[in-house]
């Protein structure tokens, strides 16, 4: 028996909007720790890892570890039917091939349940070791989204370089080139507006912009985003989900042929 009640149901709606274009089908894993997902995109270039910790749910019952295969497009369709203020409860019986999403309006005057078929998915889990990163950049998520959008109108790839001067995002395309430098800026009114750069070593890596633009669909989940970079390692783009966990995107770098 599985029963997860999330008072801030909009979080789950936002999570689905953030991942549904990157991954079609995925297994959601439920354990005492929480509700999680790890899935690669079909080209094996990007990976999404989600964790919503059990403590973040108002009610969390998971009698045994369970993995539920879902089509994320269909799940997003169902969650779109929930109001932004609704409380969302996920329910599944042991051995069942369906999951039920229950939506309750805050005043309890409207209660809806949607039942979705589960699917069998052969998931390929990757073991991601803890790594020491050469540079970690924290910046406003809206600023990062703006940069990715702007650069993708010029080129297809972005070079991210971190030096003592700041973090530079560069692209080039048929019409020309673009460089955007963000300097460390911690003297802002609100901490979430700061750009903070922790650098152990300078690093410069090249990535496909279209994946970054896909990751920025998670922007509504968090005011800030963290980029963890090391030479010749995938970048980690992390959006913290307040009080609950995170959504992390891993993207393999491009290498010169």
């Amino acid at each position: 028996m599985l029963e997860l009640r999330l008072v801030q149901g909009s979080l789950l709606k936002k999570v689905l909007e953030a991942v549904k274009d990157l991954v079609n089908d995925a297994n959601f894993d439920c354990s005492a720790t929480g509700f999680s997902l790890q899935a690669m995109d079909s080209s094996h270039v990007a990976l999404v890892a989600l964790l919503l910790r059990s403590e973040g749910f108002e009610h969390y019952r998971c009698d045994r570890n369970i993995s539920m295969g879902m089509n994320l497009g269909n799940m997003a369709k169902m969650l779109k039917c929930a109001g932004n203020d609704d409380i969302i409860t996920l329910k599944a019986d042991d051995g069942s091939d369906v999951v039920t999403f229950m939506f309750e309006s805050p005043t309890q005057d409207k209660i809806a349940d949607f039942e979705m078929k589960l699917m069998d998915i052969d998931s390929e889990h990757l073991g991601i070791p803890e790594a020491e990163y050469h540079a970690i950049v924290r910046m406003p998520s809206s600023e990062f989204a703006r940069i990715c959008k702007d650069l993708s109108s010029i080129g297809d790839t972005v070079v991210i370089s971190v030096t003592k001067e700041g973090v530079k995002f560069s692209t080039r395309g048929d019409i020309g080139t673009a460089n955007i430098v963000c300097r460390q800026n911690t003297t802002v009114d609100k901490p979430e507006e700061a750009t903070v750069i922790e650098m152990n070593e300078p690093v410069s890596l090249t990535f496909a912009l279209r994946y970054f633009n896909s990751f920025t669909k998670a922007t509504p989940l968090s005011n800030t985003v963290t980029l963890s970079l090391s030479s010749e390692l995938p970048v980690v783009v992390e959006y913290k989900i307040a009080e609950m966990g995170y959504i992390r995107f891993y993207l393999a770098p491009k290498i010169e042929d």
């Binding site: 094996h44 990976l47 990757l126 073991g127 995938p234 891993y250 393999a252 491009k254 290498i255």
Partner: peptide
């Protein structure tokens, strides 16, 4: 255009 790496080159399957 630089070559695109595969994530599996970095992380082991578990």
């Amino acid at each position: 255009t630089p070559m695109q790496n595969d994530l599996e080159e970095f992380y082991a399957m578990v």
